[in-house]
Design a protein around this nucleic acid. Sequence first.
DNA 1: ATTTACCCTATCTATCAGATAGAGTTAAAA
DNA 2: TTTTAACTCTATCTGATAGATAGGGTAAAT
Lengths: 147, 147
Amino acid sequence: MLSKKAKYAIKALIRLADHQGEPVRIADLARTEQIPPKFLELILLGLRNNGVLQSRKGKGGGYLLARDPAKIYLGQIVRMFDGPLAPVPCASQTAYVPCADCRNEAVCGVHLAMKEVRDATAKVLDGTSLASLRRKVDRVALLDHNR
Amino acid sequence: MLSKKAKYAIKALIRLADHQGEPVRIADLARTEQIPPKFLELILLGLRNNGVLQSRKGKGGGYLLARDPAKIYLGQIVRMFDGPLAPVPCASQTAYVPCADCRNEAVCGVHLAMKEVRDATAKVLDGTSLASLRRKVDRVALLDHNR
DNA sequence: ATTTACCCTATCTATCAGATAGAGTTAAAA
DNA sequence: TTTTAACTCTATCTGATAGATAGGGTAAAT
């Protein structure tokens, strides 16, 4: 399950990618994306402290992307809030932890199957940037509009 | 995250697939797979009530697969204990629920990306049966032994 | 009749997701 | 220089749920 934090983070980032260069206020973001403002505050702070966003204080301030949206991948965002992508720690690439109850991991069916799930998930999320996601949405929106 | 229930269920099912036709006692299964016995009892009961296992009471009793291991897919097991595979309800095929905070799902980036994750996960889990998983494990075990 | 083993419901506990509160700090603008 | 808009940070609350345990009930084989 994707946490609300990760979900809200992605929604906010997509929106910020539409305002490149322009700071956007927490309050505005919260309103347009239907996110509890104080909760969003926490999320954006996390993104900032992880180098994904930068902020400007004071009047006229707000948040903006810290780098090119083509270089911001969903994999990083999801891991930041929800931890490793793998369904079990022993199948994680970025945060491997062996199972206490596993005699031989190499021949463990759970390990084998979940590694495949992890790889499939990582392929999608580490292969999707804010920029590519935006392009996809635009493409769908066009089709949606033409029907 | 895969719950312990789903993980234990898969481990137990793999073991049961090795004993086709022969009932296996909860206590034996619990010992060999390092699972708390009473917890495993609950899990096996669930599998039975969902038609995956059958049971025999009394002396010489135990649990056994209710059907061909080639017809038991991990997707069913995981959904049974952990709910839909999709990271968000709006991306679920088997348990679709729209998001309250979503104006237009067709052009929602989160929806789009998570649908891809769901599809990738479902492809793996609905494509893996107990029988095919066992074959894979055997293949790996052979390699592991030959090194 | 007795033993073995599954059947079922209730309950406990710790953790955590989701959310809120409020005082503090910075920087731009008046 | 004062004001004010906005981000910064820590603490806390609450309800839900995962993981696990307890214990009496029921069926079948010997």
